[in-house]
Computed example of a mutant assay.
Amino acid sequence: MPVFQSKTFRRATTASSSLGERIGAIYRSRLSRHPFLLFGLPFIAVMVAGSFVLTPATALRYERYDRKVKQLSQEETIDLGLKGPDGEEAIKRNPRRRVIGDEREEYYRLMAKDLDNWEQKRVQRFKGEPDGRL
């Protein structure tokens, strides 16, 4: 009977085996011995680094949105009816309806309305604004 060698078989390195294949083989063989060091630690490092990278990006997104919302000139606020020409807020100048009395009176006033008989009316749209009809 033939005697087998005690050395483990390793494929001969040829010109066709690339550097990536060799690194991959080394990584797979060492991964079974050190799984956290070669798999867990890089995964945790990527998660922590991603958190640090995405935090400023998210803050920038919300800052841009806030700037976009807050940019109303003086003329636009007057045109929209948010402020009067004298600079006074429109709500203080011309309230829609004042609440007279306390909560009980308001509650009974709302309960006295007939909520069963009502008619649906379309809201007037601004010029050029789509009304939702096809």
Score class of each variant (00 low, 15 high):
residue 3 V to E: 08
residue 4 F to H: 05
residue 5 Q to H: 10
residue 5 Q to T: 07
residue 7 K to N: 03
residue 8 T to K: 10
residue 10 R to D: 06
residue 10 R to W: 05
residue 12 A to K: 11
residue 13 T to K: 10
residue 13 T to F: 04
residue 13 T to Y: 07
residue 15 A to D: 14
residue 17 S to R: 13
residue 18 S to D: 04
residue 21 E to S: 02
residue 22 R to W: 01
residue 23 I to W: 11
residue 25 A to G: 12
residue 26 I to E: 11
residue 26 I to G: 07
residue 28 R to F: 01
residue 28 R to I: 00
residue 29 S to D: 14
residue 29 S to G: 14
residue 30 R to K: 12
residue 31 L to F: 09
residue 32 S to F: 07
residue 33 R to E: 14
residue 33 R to F: 06
residue 34 H to E: 14
residue 34 H to W: 14
residue 35 P to Y: 07
residue 36 F to M: 12
residue 37 L to A: 15
residue 37 L to S: 14
residue 37 L to K: 15
residue 37 L to V: 07
residue 37 L to W: 15
residue 39 F to Y: 09
residue 40 G to S: 09
residue 40 G to C: 06
residue 42 P to H: 11
residue 43 F to T: 15
residue 44 I to M: 14
residue 44 I to A: 15
residue 44 I to V: 15
residue 46 V to T: 13
residue 46 V to G: 08
residue 47 M to G: 11
residue 47 M to T: 04
residue 47 M to D: 06
residue 48 V to L: 15
residue 48 V to Q: 10
residue 49 A to M: 06
residue 49 A to C: 05
residue 51 S to G: 15
residue 54 L to W: 08
residue 54 L to H: 08
residue 54 L to D: 03
residue 55 T to Q: 12
residue 55 T to L: 13
residue 55 T to D: 09
residue 56 P to Y: 05
residue 56 P to F: 04
residue 58 T to Q: 15
residue 59 A to R: 10
residue 59 A to N: 12
residue 59 A to P: 00
residue 59 A to C: 02
residue 60 L to H: 07
residue 60 L to D: 09
residue 61 R to G: 02
residue 62 Y to P: 00
residue 62 Y to L: 02
residue 62 Y to R: 05
residue 63 E to V: 05
residue 63 E to C: 01
residue 65 Y to V: 09
residue 65 Y to I: 13
residue 66 D to I: 03
residue 66 D to S: 08
residue 68 K to V: 01
residue 69 V to K: 03
residue 72 L to H: 08
residue 72 L to P: 00
residue 72 L to E: 06
residue 73 S to R: 02
residue 75 E to Q: 14
residue 79 D to I: 02
residue 80 L to D: 06
residue 81 G to T: 00
residue 82 L to Q: 06
residue 83 K to V: 09
residue 83 K to G: 00
residue 83 K to T: 06
residue 84 G to E: 14
residue 85 P to R: 12
residue 87 G to S: 02
residue 89 E to W: 15
residue 92 K to H: 10
residue 93 R to F: 01
residue 94 N to R: 14
residue 94 N to Y: 15
residue 95 P to W: 04
residue 96 R to Y: 10
residue 96 R to L: 12
residue 96 R to E: 08
residue 97 R to Q: 15
residue 99 V to N: 10
residue 100 I to N: 06
residue 101 G to R: 03
residue 102 D to P: 00
residue 102 D to F: 10
residue 102 D to I: 00
residue 104 R to K: 14
residue 105 E to S: 10
residue 106 E to R: 12
residue 107 Y to S: 05
residue 108 Y to H: 12
residue 109 R to P: 01
residue 111 M to G: 02
residue 111 M to Q: 14
residue 112 A to T: 03
residue 113 K to G: 01
residue 113 K to M: 11
residue 115 L to R: 11
residue 116 D to F: 03
residue 121 K to S: 01
residue 123 V to R: 10
residue 125 R to L: 08
residue 126 F to D: 13
residue 128 G to Y: 14
residue 129 E to T: 13
residue 130 P to I: 02
residue 133 R to S: 07
